[in-house]
Design a protein around this nucleic acid. Structure first.
Lengths: 213, 213
DNA sequence: GGGCAATTGTGGACAGTGTTCACTTTTCGG
DNA sequence: CCGAAAAGTGAACACTGTCCACAATTGCCC
């Protein structure tokens, strides 16, 4: 299967891997300019193919965007996992639980600062939340939401959170970091330096940890 | 000044209030479909005017959208003010401070649920945060950010918040409600019923109140 | 008042977008 | 091996934002 990634004019009539090529091109556009920048015709151009060819693989631009978004979500999950891998479960479960929650929050925010376009794309349009769809997940097989749930479970199991407060805590924790990320990316805080945003993020995660229980 | 609001074919060559008509039309489009739905040509159509006429009042679509966003922000501020007016300063400053913070958060969220399109438009593109621009404000002359600051000041003055924790608290509090609003509007939580979102909002505000100090 | 310039609108055009239809080329399975 | 399904092409349409030259209107200044 020839990975006809870019311009090199193919001699074969078939492309071989068009769908993937389109998603890749779209991903690059999303990275550079967010969801609004993922243009169908441009993707076909980069793949060296006629605009209509895209319709053999996607029902329309919206569906292409959907695929690109899934890819972006996967990157977010990977970033969180990387952050979580930095600390292993030691003999203190409470400390581990706290570190996990911290890693989720900061991994999320860190990715948002590093890859604004992808981040904005990942959350631009409603994806289902409970989906074992492998496209949304990273190596661990969990999407960002599930990674957060995992961290909160650790909080509960280690006694930092009682059952009542645990319920729906995902949404509360998620709201905070997501809100800061968007305020910093496309909201009134977009001129705030990244380091300051991340510093605010630290305070935010602490606030969540204290406020949840 | 003839408020040539809509289709009724004017007989005068001049429109009389085109700029306003365009913003109004744009506002309605934003209300119905968010920022991406505010189309310049459509606005001119509704105003009964040639597309190019818009360029006498706005440098381009982006500038029209800017005006529409300012109008939306003003609505957000108005919603918060309405919520704040529901409780007056009694003899217990701490209770008043708490109620103020609560009102800001829930007024914000409530508007987001009631007018998703306008809300999304209001925060779609970076507006400056510290701006006494009257277009961004409601009757009280404060924008949402300033209203939040006011509520937090009351928290500090009544002894619920020390000076150190007060610093930057706006951003922390704002992040939480903004995040929930966006998750519920165009994020993974978009299918969650409004009442449940608002219930989560209540918990969120409580969490902020507890977590800030 | 009368004329002239700035303002505000018009008409026509261009490039770029998503999308559809009819058609051609290639692949692959019975 | 051949015929149907898959995958790409070409031309067209409607829509968008934007620019140009030009026409109507207003209002200001002498």
């Amino acid at each position: 299967m020839k990975k006809n990634t870019s311009l090199e004019k193919r001699k074969t009539f078939r492309h071989g891997d068009l769908r993937n090529a389109l998603v890749t091109a779209g991903l690059e556009m999303a990275r550079a300019g967010g969801p609004n920048a993922v243009i169908l015709r441009e993707a076909t151009r980069q793949a060296g193919v006629a605009p209509n060819a895209a319709y053999r693989h996607f029902a329309g631009q919206a569906e292409l965007l959907d695929a690109v978004r899934a890819a972006c979500l996967s990157r977010v999950a990977a970033a969180i996992e990387d952050e979580m891998k930095k600390n292993k479960a030691g003999r203190n479960p409470q400390a581990f639980a706290r570190k996990s929650l911290h890693a989720v929050g900061m991994g999320y925010l860190g990715f948002a600062m590093r890859e604004p376009g992808m981040f904005r794309t990942a959350f631009s349009v409603p994806p289902p939340v409970h989906s074992p769809d492998p496209a949304h997940t990273a190596s661990m097989g969990l999407n960002p939401f599930q990674l957060l749930s995992l961290a909160l479970d650790r909080m509960q199991e280690s006694g930092l959170l009682n059952r009542k407060d645990r319920k729906g805590a995902e949404y509360l924790a998620w709201s905070t970091v997501h809100g800061l990320a968007l305020l910093a990316l496309e909201g009134p805080l977009h001129k705030m330096p990244r380091e300051m945003v991340l510093a605010l993020g630290e305070r935010l995660v602490v606030m969540v940890e204290r406020g949840l229980s």
